[in-house]
Amino acid sequence: MISKKAKYALKALKVLAEKYGEKDSLTVTDIANEENIPRKFLETILLELRNNGLLTSHKGKNGGYSLSVEPGKITLARILRITDGPIAPTLCVSIYYYDKCDDCGDEETCPIRPIMLKVRDANLKVYENTTLTDFINKRELVFA
């Protein structure tokens, strides 16, 4: 299950992706009102997305946020890793956040690990092959 933080990030990025390429950036208030997201929580989320290279912030009269990367190059996997950390259901199968399970004596004989690998791979197939462009266009995704 994704966190509320991740859900709000996806909603905010959807709004920014729909405005990608336009001159003006969007304020936190504009995004919060459009997607019914608590403003203070959204400020924290947008700052984190900016610090991870997905957004640019602008000051002044037309200040606010805009995407710093084109929507077709931002995958849901990247967004979820920024907001929630590991995508894998257990750390022992995580690609970027691997850690040995403290209650597991041997990963090779663990009966749970192979199942968690399948769950991770199935999720990643969707998350890594879905971009913000797909998300805003509500494209039907087909995976081989």
Rank of each mutant, 00 (worst) to 15 (best):
I2V: 07
S3I: 08
K4S: 03
K4C: 00
A6F: 07
Y8N: 08
L10M: 09
L10Q: 01
K11R: 03
A12Q: 01
L13P: 06
V15K: 14
E18G: 06
Y20D: 09
S25I: 01
L26V: 09
L26Y: 12
T29S: 13
D30R: 04
N33L: 15
E34I: 14
E34A: 14
E35T: 04
F41I: 09
F41Y: 09
E43D: 09
E43L: 00
T44V: 03
L46P: 04
L46S: 02
L47A: 02
L47M: 03
E48Y: 00
E48M: 00
R50H: 06
R50G: 02
R50M: 05
N51T: 01
G53H: 02
G53M: 01
L54T: 07
S57G: 07
H58I: 13
H58A: 08
K59R: 11
G60R: 01
K61R: 13
G63A: 11
Y65K: 01
S68I: 00
E70S: 15
P71I: 08
G72T: 12
I74K: 07
L76C: 06
A77N: 05
A77G: 01
R78A: 11
D84I: 13
D84C: 06
G85T: 10
P86A: 07
I87M: 02
A88K: 08
A88W: 12
P89H: 08
P89N: 06
L91A: 04
C92S: 13
V93A: 12
V93H: 11
V93Y: 12
I95W: 13
I95D: 15
Y97C: 02
Y98W: 14
Y98D: 02
D99C: 07
K100H: 13
K100N: 10
C101L: 11
C101R: 06
D102S: 12
D103W: 06
G105I: 03
D106I: 00
D106K: 04
E108R: 14
T109M: 03
C110M: 07
P111T: 10
P111A: 06
I112Q: 05
R113S: 02
P114T: 15
D121A: 08
A122V: 12
N123L: 13
L124E: 15
K125M: 09
K125S: 13
V126S: 06
T130Q: 02
T131M: 02
T131I: 05
L132E: 03
I136S: 07
N137D: 15
R139N: 15
E140S: 10
E140H: 06
L141H: 01
V142F: 12
F143K: 06
F143M: 10
